[in-house]
């Protein structure tokens, strides 16, 4: 019966992702003879994900598409907060621990309700070593909203 309501035009599912991340390992080694000892970690809200769902249940899947990447490095991702809803309706679930990104879509989080806004996302790069050749390595992170 949506055609009887003004909501009819708003009921289009969508997902938006703001922010990007371009870290550098410059200066992380301060003493000769040592290797990198830590991971590269973004800010806890490096990206913000917002979504509108026309169905009661939804989930967001993530995958990594490699442009100029190296197998030395692993890209990890996690949700660091719940975000907000316009009407306070709905839930969000999914462990906030890090998930390894691969070329296969993996569920990052799931929820219910018509919308969820500004879900904070944090990234981490592991595997960095002085043995990794000098270069800039790039990948694309794909977020997909699935509804059911």
């Amino acid at each position: 019966m949506c055609w009887l309501s003004s909501k009819c035009l708003a009921q289009v599912s969508s997902i938006t992702v703001t922010g990007s991340w371009n870290p550098s390992a410059a200066g992380l080694i301060t003493e000769a003879g040592l290797n990198y000892s830590s991971y590269l970690t973004s800010s806890p809200n490096q990206s913000l994900v917002s979504l509108v769902s026309v169905k009661s249940n939804w989930e967001v899947k993530v995958e990594q598409q490699n442009n100029n990447w190296t197998s030395d490095l692993q890209l990890w991702i996690r949700r660091t907060g719940d975000g907000t809803t316009l009407g306070g309706i709905g839930t969000i679930s999914g462990t906030p621990t890090y998930t390894l990104l691969t070329s296969m879509p993996t569920t990052l989080f799931a929820g219910t309700g018509p919308d969820r806004n500004d879900i904070p996302i944090e990234y981490q790069v592991r595997g960095l070593s002085v043995l990794t050749p000098v270069a800039s390595y790039s990948a694309t992170i794909v977020f997909t909203l699935m509804e059911f």
Binding site: C8, S14, S20, S24, S47, T140, I141, V142
Partner: peptide, 27 residues
């Protein structure tokens, strides 16, 4: 109304780049 809803295709995928710079190290 129904024809308008059908015309607005779902926008269910977004992406953004990540670029990691591995620097020259000589210590």
């Amino acid at each position: 109304g129904q024809s308008v809803v059908k015309a607005q295709a779902p926008n269910n995928t977004k992406n953004h780049p990540v670029t990691v710079t591995v620097p020259d190290v000589a210590l």
